[in-house]
Write a protein that binds this DNA or RNA. Structure first.
Lengths: 260, 260
DNA sequence: GAAGAATTTGAAATTATTTGCAAGAATAAA
DNA sequence: TTTATTCTTGCAAATAATTTCAAATTCTTC
């Protein structure tokens, strides 16, 4: 047998595979992972309890609710606009000075920030189609879109062109989302494709603001982005474990707690 | 048998197929999905209960409530839906081979072509946000977006980055619109910013198709794009001055007249 | 390290589901 | 009407899920 694999690693690869393909059969996975169908079935059943996928006959399907951080399903309105996100977003927007150059990623919370940012007449650099659309109606906001290939379900531009788009510019602030932030594990995100992009964003910005609601704190996603002490500013709702906040502040993170 | 497919996946593909074609037969689906007509029938009957489609004899029709175009925020103005444009667009789409690499600009007629092009599963390169949005719901279409600055009202990406985006690639066909075409004045367009872009598109494509309705023929806009003899293919409605058509053909233009 | 406990894995038997097929009924077309 | 499809229904074959159990692996503890 080939290099044996830990259960956790296997499940991670299943998750990864599903995020790309949306559907897959047990057989397919068992061949990919060199384990029996029984084992794959057990893994899948476990992953079902964590909510990342749904079972179907003969296979699994990516759970619809798994957004990228989550990146809005292409309809950014409606359900995604939770009061919590709205609240964090409003505060986050208040941190931006008029006329600043702002990088924004494809996260759903970031999209909410974008809506509150119109009055600041920013110059926006983004790889998010929804944000581009949002501003294309407002002349007051200058929007620079990176190139790239559209990642279907999510509406973000990915690939080398997108990364290159960020590597060529400099911005005052980057506003980003992520799937998890933990003292030990640092910042993590759900899609491998986003990591390169977000790294380029961080590099291009003088200041980085992470926006995420408290459910993301203490959690971790699949892919590592950066360590906790590399986070300059964090905006979240005040519903967080105070111990975690203290630990983050000790690491030098400027934590803003928004009462919601 | 080929890679077996999950029931849910099949149903999703039926749904997607219907969004493209609006109507299709069971036989057609059974061939597409490599399953028996019985199975397709069962799938269809299930989908009927979810409301995404209606049953007919021998086939299924997309439910009226389901917007064909999906939800793209940047809906081009109402004029886009004119029967004339629709008609030209449909014909123009028929000129494209399945799987071709297609450059599309931000013109409203071109947008209509884009809607008819989904079934050809093209690789699309565009600087148009509306087109990017349109396809972001369809996994079958690979969309490459050039970078650039959003030109507010039109939702097209402009500037050096956009031009560069086209200069790096090669495509089978470019489908473009313009503000005017005249034997003497050549092709002209309304926005200076678009000229550089369109020149880059023309350079990157092996074949160039101009789509414009007959009101644009004989007219001229402010900015010069290229001379008439540089136009390879023109698709327009048959309501044109025959003298003009003759003159264009004499210049080597392949004029397609669509009866509308 | 080795022995034993605990867990994980693969495989077999049983049960449940899905799929394809066929015969007669129903529907549309000629 | 006749004719040709398509639909329904029931059934058998194929496929997948569940349960169970033995072998293999990992984890303790010495």
């Amino acid at each position: 047998m080939l290099a044996s694999m830990l259960a956790e690693e296997r499940q991670q690869r299943i998750n990864e595979h599903l995020r790309e393909k949306e559907f897959c059969t047990l057989k397919e996975l068992s061949e990919m992972l060199n384990v029996s169908v029984s084992t794959v079935r057990r893994d899948i059943n476990f992953l079902k309890t964590t909510g990342v996928l749904r079972r179907t006959h003969g296979g699994a399907r990516l759970s619809e609710q798994v957004e990228i951080e989550g990146t809005h399903p292409l309809v950014p309105n409606a359900s995604v606009r939770s009061e919590l996100k709205e609240c964090i977003a409003r505060y986050c927007a208040s941190l931006i000075e008029p006329g600043q150059t702002v990088i924004m990623d494809g996260g759903s919370t970031v999209f909410s920030v974008a809506r509150h940012l119109v009055v600041k007449h920013p110059i926006v650099i983004t790889n998010s189609l929804p944000i581009s659309n949002l501003y294309s109606n407002y002349r007051q906001v200058e929007v620079h879109v990176t190139g790239g290939v559209v990642y279907p379900r999510l509406g973000v531009l990915t690939g080398p062109n997108a990364v290159e788009g960020f590597s060529k510019i400099h911005a005052d602030v980057a506003i980003m989302g992520a799937g998890g932030l933990d003292v030990q594990d640092g910042v993590t995100n759900t899609h491998a494709l986003l990591i390169d992009m977000q790294l380029a964003m961080i590099k291009a910005a003088r200041k980085v603001i992470f926006c995420m609601d408290s459910t993301k704190l203490g959690a971790r996603s699949l892919f590592f982005l950066c360590s906790a002490d590399q986070v300059q500013t964090l905006v979240t709702n005040s519903d967080v474990d105070p111990v975690l906040v203290k630990a983050l502040r000790k690491k030098g993170v400027d934590v803003h707690l928004v009462p919601c």
